[in-house]
Amino acid sequence: METREMTCIICPMGCALRVTRDGDTITVTGNTCKRGEKYGIQEMTMPMRTVTTSVTCRGGDRPLVSVKTKDQVPKEKIAEVLEACREASVQAPVRVGDVILADAAGAGSDVVATCNADAV
């Protein structure tokens, strides 16, 4: 049996959740709404995050291009995604949505540009 305390982030109430996993059964207490329960279960089983960072831009009007994972990735994959982005670079021009890294670090999401960079 595993129990974790966490703050619900769904609304400003910030309910103090107590999430318990007993075999396949997960129980959430401390929540005041249904969405809190869902959040608790997700955080217990597979917490997901969007990663935002930047990559080096070559030949552009700026030194960096900001990027994000197009979809959320498992929390434990964040470090690997960041490292992949740190190693990456992109040639200008770049447009919002351009894929910079496909399935970055095998985390299940493309990394895409979130800003434009013009070539200079």
Binding site: S54, T56, L64, R86, E87, S89
Partner: peptide
């Protein structure tokens, strides 16, 4: 710097 210049060409 946060990124090495042209680390990955």
């Amino acid at each position: 710097k946060t990124r090495e210049d042209g680390k990955n060409k």
